[in-house]
Amino acid sequence: MNYTELEKLCHQVRRDILRMTHRVNSGHPGGSMGCTEYMVSLYFKHMKHQTAFSMDGKNEDIFFLSNGHISPVFYSVLARSGYFPVDELNTFRKLNSRLQGHPATHEHLPGVRMASGSLGQGLSVACGAALAKKLNHDPQTVFTLHGDGELQEGQNWEAFMFAAHQKIDNLIAAIDFNNKQIDGNVSDVMSLGNLQAKIEAFGWETTVVEDGNSLGEIDGALNYAKSRLGNGKPIALILKTKMGYGVDFMEDDHNWHGKAPNDEQLARALSQIPETLGDY
């Protein structure tokens, strides 16, 4: 898929995120919009995956969302990929929906392999799934996405250590480094310090994407990361994104972490994003 087509998808996914969260007056649009380019790049360009969903994901690339609160972007990308009907996005966060506030396997939504929401657990799960691929002689890759604030959870650092020690080199973990969390800037709430140096010190290879909302930069970084698979080290991508990217009044503002747009804000936001593939 070329950049023009990917960009159209990004526009439509952002519209989905805004409309889903607005409809139930809850959810997490900020991080979802910041990670839209990465998720679209994974599912529409870089991952080899099948929408005929199997939990085991044998012989396909699989993805885990560790920062489960950005479920709107995950659900939109899954629906737009064909895992389930796009109309089902209408049920997000409603009673009896498969689209729970945070991703779950309990309701059997195709495309979701692990519950997430309580932070810091996804990297460990990805390590296990990557080890299972090795045991199965499955050559495909495990991808993940984590928040930066989420890295304050200690379990991540257990997993960083474990992955390097076990030489889990079929894993590409991405960190949404927008420097935003609920209470403000990550650097103010509890700084991650030199994140790249820390992750490298744990024995990983790292690549920094200076503009994590650039489809071209993401493409280059993923191509490079994939070229480094199988070299005995896990790989981390540090994506410098902007929370709320794509809507001027939401951009780079931590207040949009977990707040839905109201009617007026939705109208203003949608006016900035073209409807490219049809709203659900």
């Binding site: 939990m55 085991d56 994901g57 044998k58 699989i62 392999r113 692990m114 657990q121 996804g122 990297l123 460990s124 799960v125 990805a126 390590c127 296990g128 799934a129 990557a130 080890l131 299972a132 691929k133 045991l135 199965n136 499955d138 379990q155 997993a159 474990f162």
Partner: peptide, 9 residues
């Protein structure tokens, strides 16, 4: 968490 991941596969 790793154990949970190993079940996937």
């Amino acid at each position: 968490g790793t154990a949970a991941g190993l079940t996937i596969g």
